[in-house]
Amino acid sequence: MQRSQQFLVLYSGVLTVAFAATALLAFGPWRTGDFRELTVERLNVVEPDGTLRMVISNHDLIPGIIVRSEERALDRSQAGMLFYNDEGSEVGGLIFGGHRNAEGEVVDSGVSLSFDKYESNQIVSLYGVDDSKNKFAGLSVADSPSGSEVNRRIWLGRGEDGIATLALMDADGNKRLLMQVEPDGQAKFSVLDAEGNVIQNVLPSSVAE
């Protein structure tokens, strides 16, 4: 009886070690291979020291704002892909979403690809938004000199009014040059002062006459 018990203990120990070794080989950090399909709710890409470099996530698990590996809560209404620099700070991302609310309105519908200044605000953004509150698409280039404020310098896009616009702003974000084409094809070029007053309009000769 005693030998049987000793055998069972030894046998159990061998099985435990074998199972642990199999799990480590299957899921350890050295595991590589080709996979036809992978289903996850969130995927973290990290450096060998654990520094986060990229997250691909659904809406429920998408992180808040991460600066130097420290996360601050932020309610994001989309899923997407977030990028991080060498120090584990967010530097931009690709986010997307859209659904109907209880009233049947389309909300949070669109895609945004953005790139951030070092530990600061977005300075380049590509937008495509179309829901019950906003309808616009375009490219935005901004300044953030001190890291606290954001002053848009360039906007190239289309607004809800259907007007295609190229707007150039000064360092304070004031529009100074506007090139616009309305849906019916009417085009104009405008020069503005710092207060937004039109100094000069340049229209096609057929319209100006």
Rank of each mutant, 00 (worst) to 15 (best):
124 V>P: 00
147 G>L: 06
103 E>H: 14
128 G>D: 10
106 V>D: 09
113 L>G: 03
153 R>N: 02
109 S>I: 00
141 V>I: 15
141 V>H: 06
143 D>G: 05
136 F>S: 04
129 V>K: 11
130 D>W: 03
108 D>P: 04
131 D>H: 09
149 E>T: 15
117 K>N: 14
153 R>M: 08
127 Y>Q: 00
124 V>I: 11
146 S>H: 13
147 G>Y: 12
131 D>Y: 10
105 E>W: 10
131 D>Q: 09
157 G>L: 00
155 W>T: 02
102 A>P: 06
115 F>K: 03
140 S>M: 11
111 V>T: 14
115 F>P: 04
118 Y>S: 11
139 L>H: 05
124 V>W: 05
109 S>V: 04
153 R>E: 03
156 L>E: 05
108 D>K: 13
134 N>W: 06
115 F>R: 05
150 V>Q: 15
135 K>C: 00
111 V>F: 14
151 N>H: 15
116 D>L: 13
141 V>Q: 03
107 V>S: 00
141 V>W: 06
156 L>G: 01
122 Q>D: 14
137 A>M: 10
136 F>W: 13
135 K>P: 00
143 D>C: 00
114 S>D: 14
141 V>N: 01
146 S>D: 15
112 S>W: 02
129 V>C: 08
119 E>P: 00
118 Y>F: 12
140 S>Q: 11
134 N>H: 11
131 D>A: 07
119 E>Y: 01
141 V>T: 07
140 S>D: 04
116 D>E: 15
147 G>N: 12
140 S>T: 09
107 V>F: 04
106 V>A: 13
